[in-house]
Design a protein around this nucleic acid. Structure first.
Length: 283
DNA sequence: ACCCAGGCGGGCG
DNA sequence: CGCCCGCATGGG
């Protein structure tokens, strides 16, 4: 057991539940005053316990101690200065309500490849089914890791998913997204994934959108949750609805919405988006 | 039986 | 550009 400090407000439940990658392949339980989160990565499995805002963890797999620590800090957004972020995005009463209702929700930084996979699956889909399909992929293509005589599955990496056929994806429930995922895993490599880090936001988004099945919205999700580009502003049906009802007051195209959001919330539009999305979806 | 879900690609005007 | 359609699948 290793302990981690948390600065500022942090709500593990909201962070886990709010439609970010962990919601699609992690496990969360609340038992008395203890919260438990576990999740697989491509290299190991993490077990996190929260009690009275104190966080401890164990991990298994191919991680040096310091890398495991960094994995959790990134994954849960523990280094974000949430009070500063609130001061920048709390611009009006609507988002103020969202922040009050979701106080401590953090934008997570997930593994870029994992994020590409889950958000390609996410299109025209609902959260429950995204999760089911993602767990199917893990079960079928993830490497096995033995922990205390129990066999666990890791998140499949690029090579694991290259072993899949188009029919494999279809049989796991990906539907019309099967051809997208098949095309992507067979056309990118880890250089492609790492190069995104060196590009500015617009360049990175255009690069991602060259892939089949990645459009404006999915590219923004990958940039926000996989690369933690906080200027990314994914516009799905819920966010579009929130923007039209509370901000733009009329139909606007995605370009106008992006400009408006990044102007209003500076380079933290992605954080604002996550609060608007989850708040709108649950109201 | 319809409608929708963290959309995208392609075709048409 | 904007609009419309097909695309798989399961749940309300």
């Amino acid at each position: 057991m290793i302990n981690l400090d948390i600065k500022g407000p942090f709500n593990l439940k909201y962070t886990f539940e709010s439609g970010q990658p962990l919601a699609f392949f992690g496990d969360y339980k609340l038992d008395n005053n203890n919260e438990f989160l576990s999740y697989p990565t491509t290299k190991g499995i993490f077990y996190i316990t929260m009690n009275n805002n104190s966080l401890s963890y164990e991990f298994y797999g191919d991680y040096a101690d310091e890398d495991a620590r960094k994995e959790i800090i990134d994954r849960l957004g523990l280094n974000d200065d949430l009070n500063y972020i609130y001061s920048k995005i709390n611009t009006d009463s609507y988002i103020e309500n969202a922040i009050r209702n979701l106080y401590g929700l953090r934008v997570t930084k997930n593994d870029p490849f994992e994020t590409i996979v889950v958000f390609v699956i996410s299109q025209q889909n609902n959260i429950k089914r995204i999760r089911k399909i993602t767990l199917n992929l893990i079960e079928k293509f993830g490497k096995q890791l033995n922990i205390r005589n129990e066999n666990k599955k890791l998140f499949p990496d690029l090579e694991d998913l290259r072993k899949a056929s188009l029919n494999d994806f279809l049989s796991l429930g990906l539907g019309f997204r099967s051809k997208y995922l098949y095309s992507i895993v067979n056309s990118i490599d880890y250089d492609f994934i790492n190069e995104i880090n060196k590009l500015n936001y617009n360049e990175a988004k255009n690069r991602l959108m060259e892939l089949e099945g990645i459009g404006d919205k999915v590219a923004d999700c990958i940039l926000l949750f996989g690369y933690k580009r906080l200027e990314a502003f994914p516009i799905d049906t819920w966010v579009k609805k929130a923007m039209e009802e509370h901000y733009l007051l009329k139909k606007a195209n995605v370009k106008e919405i992006h400009e408006y959001a990044n102007k209003k919330w500076n380079n933290l539009a992605g954080y604002a988006q996550q609060y608007l999305f989850w708040y709108k979806r649950n109201s």
